[in-house]
């Protein structure tokens, strides 16, 4: 029975007035959606490889997480391996090495985040002020080029430059200065990781900020100039607020990577002398998983890391939402 005052369509049952569709409406709704999808089929087709990538390489492998709760044997497989519950997690948390690598991972990630986060922003602001187009593009190309080098190459170059017998220490020694052994001294190793990471990535990271700056209405700048604002004031009162949204999103995503301190970089640059400060969760997973063949324990570490990352993203999104800042959702 229709409720008085409600706008009930023919063929729509009473329940539709409270939000539930009848079968006919559901079919019509589905046809409408599929039609819309067909209308934009090229865009969906463009999206398909990315979706497939995530489905094949991210979602399907999630099934393997069950290894973290088993004494996994490749011979017995997932269905045949004995279930041990949280035993590997208990073992993990009791391992002194785990606490060390966890601490290293968080510290290195936080260093990279809080020191590395402002650099591409500042660079984008500075680059935005450059008027000479050719120079601007040259700088942009030179600075984001290292992003495309793998850490095997870039890290190898860094080791050659600043490692023992490298160009930098040899050059300094030639002018009477002695450079400390940066790559083998636990005091300096994390700093080297952070600095080399910034050098490699700041140019690429600045691209999103440059794009955000380009999207700011130029008339606002014109109005500010009319009001007598200088460049610094324009950057402070117009550009930075305009970047707030993208900064928030990048920050949230960075918090999700808080337990990824950069496997490739650390693996290429570390050595036993700095394991105590440089060994991270990923390098630990690599050693116990692939080299030692302890797949279950390695899976437990990986799962722990992913859970923490998910919690960090949710928490950060929530905090920013409460602060009325742009968020992911």
């Amino acid at each position: 029975m229709a409720t008085a005052g409600t706008d009930v369509q023919p063929g729509v049952s009473e329940s539709s007035t409270t939000g539930h569709l009848g079968p006919d409406s559901r079919r019509r709704h589905l046809r409408r959606e599929l039609g819309r999808a067909w209308k934009y089929r090229e865009l969906y087709l463009l999206l398909l490889p990315a979706i497939l990538f995530f489905v094949i390489f991210r979602y399907i492998p999630m099934g393997g997480l069950v290894m973290g709760f088993q004494n996994y044997s490749p011979v017995r497989g997932f269905l045949g391996s004995p279930w041990v519950g949280f035993q590997h997690f208990e073992t993990l948390f009791a391992l002194p090495k785990f606490l060390e690598v966890f601490r290293n991972t968080v510290i290195i990630s936080l260093y990279k985040l809080f020191i590395g986060f402002p650099v591409p922003i500042i660079f984008a602001l500075l680059l935005n002020e450059v008027r000479h187009l050719l120079f601007k593009r040259a700088i942009q190309t030179v600075t984001y080029f290292p992003h495309f080098l793998s850490w095997v190459v870039y890290g190898g170059i860094m080791v050659l430059f600043i490692g023992p017998g490298g160009a930098v220490p040899e050059g300094l020694e030639a002018i009477g200065l002695k450079m400390p052994a940066l790559l083998v001294n636990p005091k300096y190793f994390r700093t080297i990781l952070v600095i080399t990471n910034i050098m490699k990535e700041f140019g690429w990271a600045a691209i999103v900020y440059l794009a955000a700056i380009a999207s700011i209405d130029p008339s606002i700048y014109e109005a500010a100039m009319v009001d007598g604002a200088n460049r610094l004031q324009q950057a402070r009162y117009i550009t930075l607020p305009g970047l707030r949204g993208i900064m928030g999103i990048v920050f949230i995503l960075s918090m999700g990577n808080i337990l990824e301190a950069g496997f490739e970089q650390v693996f290429v640059m570390y050595n036993p002398a700095v394991y105590a400060v440089g060994d991270i969760l990923d390098t630990y997973i690599y050693r116990i998983g692939l080299v030692d063949g302890r797949f279950s324990l390695a899976t437990a570490v990986g799962l722990f890391r992913s859970v923490i990352a998910a919690i960090m993203i949710v928490m950060t999104n929530y905090i920013l939402k409460r602060a009325d800042q742009p968020t992911l959702w």
Partner: peptide
């Protein structure tokens, strides 16, 4: 043991 030896020798 290897880490300790390397750390001490190199620093």
């Amino acid at each position: 043991a290897n880490e300790f030896a390397a750390r001490v020798v190199l620093n």
